[in-house]
Write a protein that binds this DNA or RNA. Structure first.
Length: 406
RNA sequence: GGAGGGGUGGGUGAGUGGUUAAAACCACCAGACUGUAAAUCUGGCGCUCUGACGGGCUUCGCAGGUUCGAAUCCUGCCCCCUCCA
């Protein structure tokens, strides 16, 4: 890699926006001013191949640094994946087959490179060095730290206090991650704030092994669409990068209003001043938060799809959610196949209800109606066998539709 | 090697022989409200039959057993955790 590196005049775009903490900031800015390409480390476990907006906060940082001429080293944690990151405490560890790891890694990278520049990224697999590790290496590595150091880490301390299990392999996790830093001679490692411990162990180990300790660059944790907890797949409050445009747009519109500005800050290039202005006008109630949220949803959808997709997602949202009109596209069923069914059966056959019991409930709660092509809305009662005609639309609740066709 | 605690519906978690399809809370679904969202209120939230009333079936780690009746008692097995050594 050749070293055409720009040194930005104003560092705050890098060191402030979308940043939670840098250890140490002074060293980091000094590194930036050296004018050499820095080696930016980012690791991931191929146990969880899905990237969501929560990850994008960090990926955007990497991209920003790449655009200045720095180099990303992406570590595929094909060994640590087997242990499971103790950060955030779940103790589940599933063993993956080699094939699964490959598949997950591939899927991860496909998404990763939607934000990060592939040209300035070097991909390294942990197995390249851990595959040859011997017990002697393990002992040599573990001998540098004490159990006490590790037990002081918040996750472990809490679990220990609560009599929750801590697997020995979990203690190994930070060490392995740290060793990665040594192998690739990382200058800066990126991670969420929940990664602080792991990042610091890397920094420390490098120092012990005669390298310049890496800088630890921590990004804020993005709050999920539920407005309460960290965005994560398991909490089902996430927006995936591979989300279809309508869903991506819709999920972003379901954000609580108070998260709008943080999403702008972490996930878009909208200038700080503009964001401050939005904040201001929402606080003084001179603007409707919905409009800013739409702008956000449009930008993000466009970023991961394209402007056209974002626009039609918005149209769909306005049509279906705001005006409660019918969507343009919906699943279609042939009259010949469903014409004779009772309303209950119709709902289950079309997948609009997951069981007959569910269908009954929906009907009983007044969620179901038939919309004729004339626009006439016909309400139904359980057990009815409505006379359907081509062009009729069956609706269950806000979002479930089916159209009858010839 | 020894002692103890535990496995309940998507999650947390109550329940120690019938009144328990199983409290409560969260999540979720629907309705009302609504300029998105939030908040609030109402209803729902195993499967199945029924327009409804109501019925049937399956469920509390797994397999057996006791009993008119078991998530609750007994036996065996599997799994998890803590402590002592």
């Amino acid at each position: 890699m050749t070293g055409q590196v720009q040194i930005p005049e104003n560092l705050s775009a890098i060191t402030r926006r979308g940043v939670s903490r840098i250890i140490s900031e002074a060293e980091f800015t000094a590194m930036l001013r050296q004018g050499r390409p820095l080696r930016l480390k980012m690791g991931f476990d191929p146990s969880r191949p899905d990237i969501h907006l929560g990850h994008v906060v960090g990926l955007r940082k990497l991209r920003q640094m790449q655009d200045l001429g720095h180099q990303v080293i992406l570590i595929v944690g094909d060994w640590t994946a087997q242990i499971g990151d103790p950060s955030g405490r779940s103790a589940t560890r599933t063993m993956l087959t080699h094939a699964e790891v490959l598949e997950n890694a591939e899927s991860y990278m496909r998404q990763f490179f939607k934000v990060v520049d592939r040209e300035r990224t070097q991909v390294e697999w942990q197995s390249q060095w851990f595959g040859e590790f011997t017990l002697a290496n393990v002992i040599e590595l573990t001998s540098r730290f004490t159990v006490n150091q590790f037990l002081h880490r918040e996750d472990f301390a809490n679990r220990y206090a609560d009599n929750q299990p801590i697997a020995i392999t979990e203690l190994l996790y930070p060490l392995m991650q740290a060793y990665d830093s040594v192998v690739i001679e990382s200058d800066v490692e990126f991670g969420g704030t929940d990664q602080m411990f792991n990042l610091l162990v890397g920094r420390e180990l490098q120092g012990m092994m005669g390298q310049t300790p890496q800088q630890c660059f921590m990004m804020p944790i993005l709050v999920g669409t539920d407005g309460a907890r960290k965005m994560s797949k398991s909490l089902d409050n996430y927006v995936a990068l591979e989300e279809p445009p309508q869903d991506m747009y819709g999920k972003l519109m379901s954000l609580p209003d108070r998260l709008i500005t943080s999403y702008y800050e972490y996930l878009t290039d909208v200038p700080d001043a503009d964001i401050a202005e939005m904040q201001q006008s929402m606080a003084s109630e001179t603007a409707n938060p919905m409009d800013f949220k739409k702008g956000l949803a449009r930008r993000i959808t466009a970023a991961f799809h394209d402007a056209g997709a974002a626009e039609s997602a918005e149209t769909h949202f306005e049509q279906v959610v705001q005006r409660r009109d019918l969507p343009d596209a919906m699943p279609e069923y042939r009259l010949a196949d469903i014409g004779d069914l009772s309303i209950n059966r119709l709902l289950t056959q079309t997948g609009m209800a997951s069981s007959n019991a569910e269908a009954r409930r929906l009907i009983g709660q007044g969620a179901v109606e038939i919309i004729r092509s004339s626009g006439e809305r016909v309400s139904v009662a359980a057990g009815d066998a409505p006379a359907l005609a081509a062009g009729d639309v069956l609706r269950a609740g806000r979002r479930r539709f089916a159209r009858v066709v010839e």
